[in-house]
């Protein structure tokens, strides 16, 4: 359970206050939901990739390329088939449907990329502290951080079939144990493959349950939720770079809004 997306590196984005990065994340989401056309969404994605490059976080994209690609393909194909339009291309696919599908694909992928850059450049503890300073109750903020911890587990489980080398320990160990007994995870049709995963899911699920139980005990014994005013060892604060980042992001967002409502 101890795999984080956070990349411990030096970068201007890492040095930003977590609250700034939360605002940038929300701003990118707003920009993404404004549009349906591929053009401006592609521009947004480019801005995000630039942001990620400055934050030296793009390496993490390689870990989820499969997820990004699958979403893009599923979105493009399904919208092409089901969305209506007036310019037919082939079969029941229309130009408008295809455009809409590509737009939706870039939109979802942009949001994932933005979230990933956030998690890659911000420590879990910083996120929690940022949320607390934004007046989110501590327990809720911590629950959120636990949810973040689960992200790699979920992605890992989903990708276990592909044996991505970076996925978490339990999934790998269970898969290895069952494959040692002769379980074949790679051959057969979709139904067969799904069925052959049952021997993986039961131990993983039980292990996660036990782990959660242990975690609860360990958390409480370290005074979690003791009901006293919580202090913080980590220090955060707004600096010049934060103001610069927020103004720049504000300008870009304003530009996107202007394009959306004038053009």
């Amino acid at each position: 359970m101890n795999l984080f997306l956070y990349l411990d590196r030096e970068s201007p984005v890492h040095r930003l206050d977590p609250r700034t990065k939360i605002f940038l994340l929300l701003g990118s989401f707003v920009a993404a939901v404004l549009f349906f056309q591929p053009g401006p969404l592609l521009a947004l994605l480019a801005v995000l990739l630039l942001y990620g490059a400055v934050g030296r976080a793009l390496g993490n994209l390689r870990r989820v390329w499969f997820l990004l690609l699958s979403i893009a393909l599923i979105s493009t194909v399904s919208w092409s088939v089901f969305a209506r339009g007036s310019t037919p291309l082939v079969w029941r696919v229309t130009w408008e449907g295809l455009r809409y599908g590509i737009g939706a694909a870039i939109k979802i992928d942009s949001m994932i990329v933005s979230g990933l850059i956030f998690l890659s450049t911000t420590r879990t503890e910083e996120i929690v502290l940022g949320l607390i300073r934004l007046r989110v109750p501590y327990q809720a903020a911590f629950a959120f951080s636990l949810a973040i911890r689960m992200v790699p587990t979920i992605i890992g489980t989903a990708l276990a079939i592909r044996m991505v080398p970076t996925i978490i320990g339990t999934v790998v160990t269970v898969a290895e144990a069952q494959r040692s007994r002769g379980l074949d995870l790679e051959s057969g049709g979709p139904v067969q493959r799904l069925r052959s995963h049952v021997p993986l899911l039961v131990p993983i699920f039980l292990h996660t349950l036990r782990n959660t139980d242990q975690l609860a005990k360990a958390l409480e014994s370290r005074g979690f939720g003791a009901g006293r005013e919580r202090t913080s060892y980590l220090e955060i604060g707004f600096h010049v770079a934060d103001a610069f980042a927020l103004i720049l992001a504000g300008l870009i967002l304003a530009m996107f809004i202007a394009i959306r409502f004038t053009g």
């Binding site: 005074g223 006293r228 060892y233 980590l234």
Partner: peptide, 11 residues
Amino acid sequence: AFGPENLGVPR
């Protein structure tokens, strides 16, 4: 630091 933080120990 996690434990002392929970107990409100000064930084």
